[in-house]
């Protein structure tokens, strides 16, 4: 894995030779800004459906290994 990653990083170093002076970075293919939607409340998924995919949960929330008081 380390060798493969080194090879890939070595390959992308190719970008260094491109002159990008004065070029604005392009974050998105179709540049849009400030897409707003109305601030209206809508229904969300019911809690039981949301929790149904959690690997470990009770009826109210997600359960994780103890974080405090170890």
């Amino acid at each position: 894995m380390t060798d493969q990653l080194a090879q890939i990083v070595g390959y992308v170093d190719l970008l260094a030779e491109v002159d990008t002076n004065g070029i604005e970075p392009m974050a998105h293919a179709i540049e849009m800004a400030n897409v707003f939607k109305d601030d209206k409340a809508a229904t969300s998924l019911p809690r039981d459906e949301t929790l149904a995919n959690a690997p470990h949960h009770d009826e109210r929330g997600y359960l994780v290994p103890a974080v405090l008081g170890e």
Binding site: V12, V18, P25, A29
Partner: peptide, 13 residues
């Protein structure tokens, strides 16, 4: 890397 790639992305476009 990332910033450079985003600039080259614009040149490609």
């Amino acid at each position: 890397y990332y910033l450079k790639a985003m600039k080259v992305r614009r040149l490609i476009r």
